[in-house]
């Protein structure tokens, strides 16, 4: 029997076969969506660039060469030109991919589970727990995100790690709101009643019954937020509270290129394009994932 036939068997004989077959079907469905594939390829390319940065970079990302400052794109040896300190923009972008990936992954790892947990618990429990958690969420939502992140960074000190924590702290409330709204719509459904009747604890119901249903909207929201996360990190970098110079963080590169935008457009534009492409990639990927994660949509 071929691997294909084994994976797509109508009646899998074991749980492992069923799970692998499920994953394979999801992949087949995903492959049929051209836009989702574009997103996947973009993100894979980002990963590859980040991994192979030393090989792809033509210069050191931090080496300054004041004799060759603000060279336009296409100058011999500098594919995308140089910035105000004569650093090669291509090399900085390539190394910056690492920083971007770290920021994005860390924020997602911190934010999505926290928001999901708070929202699902509040929505399922109701009563005073719901009120307490939602008022806390409201307090966080009431502050502009960047200002709150600023306050946190100011309190715990500048640096990329602290910027990540600050962004995470300010980014979870919308996720909690979203998850809570979804939870409330499914809380009274019969399959939850059936789980309660089986003797499932509240924690078990939240984790195993409620969360899988809230996950898809959270995934979409995360991918939509990706651009905002990168830009918030950039904003903190600009204020000297995020990535510290000379780290080639994309947002910080835009900030420093701002002063030259009229005469040397490429300094700010190149990292801008990079952020744009990566954000779009995450968006397309997330959209495809949402459809694929829901077995009904396939």
């Amino acid at each position: 029997m071929s691997v294909d036939a084994w994976l797509l068997a109508e009646a899998p004989s074991s749980r492992r076969q069923a799970r692998l077959g499920e994953a394979y079907r999801a992949w087949l469905a995903f492959r049929r969506k051209p836009l989702a594939m574009v997103g996947l390829v973009t993100i894979l390319a980002l990963l590859a660039v980040a991994a192979a940065a030393p090989l792809l970079a033509t210069h050191s990302p931090i080496a300054q060469d004041l004799a060759a400052r603000l060279l336009p794109p296409g100058t011999a040896g500098h594919l995308l030109g140089t910035d105000e300190l004569g650093r090669d923009i291509w090399s900085r972008l390539v190394y910056g991919a690492r920083i971007t990936l770290v920021i994005v992954t860390m924020v997602v790892v911190l934010v999505a589970p926290l928001g999901l947990l708070v929202g699902c618990v509040a929505g399922y429990a109701g009563g005073w727990l719901d009120s307490t958690l939602m008022r806390v969420t409201d307090i966080f939502l009431a502050f502009p995100r960047l200002i709150l992140a600023l306050a946190f960074v100011a309190a715990i000190g500048p640096g990329i790690e602290n910027a990540i924590i600050a962004i995470a702290i300010t980014a979870w409330p919308p996720y909690a709101r979203l998850a809570r709204a979804e939870t409330i719509t499914i809380r009274e459904s019969d399959f939850i009643a059936a789980a309660r009747l089986q003797g499932a604890s509240a924690a078990r119901i939240v984790v195993r019954q409620v969360m899988p249903l809230c996950l898809s909207s959270v995934i979409v929201r995360v991918t939509l937020d990706m651009a905002g996360i990168i830009l918030t990190a950039a904003g903190l970098g600009f204020l000297g509270l995020g990535a510290q110079p000379p780290a080639p963080e994309w947002g910080a590169m835009i900030s420093s290129g701002r002063s030259y935008i009229l005469d040397q457009w490429w300094v700010a534009t190149m990292p801008g394009i990079a952020i744009c492409v990566v954000s779009l990639g995450f968006n397309l990927l997330g959209d495809g994932l949402r459809d694929v994660l829901d077995p009904k949509q396939r």
């Binding site: 069923a18 019969d190 399959f191 009643a193 899988p212 829901d294 077995p295 009904k296």
Partner: peptide
């Protein structure tokens, strides 16, 4: 239609 979890086999 409502008593079975839609994402569970």
């Amino acid at each position: 239609y409502g008593s079975l979890h839609p994402r569970h086999t």
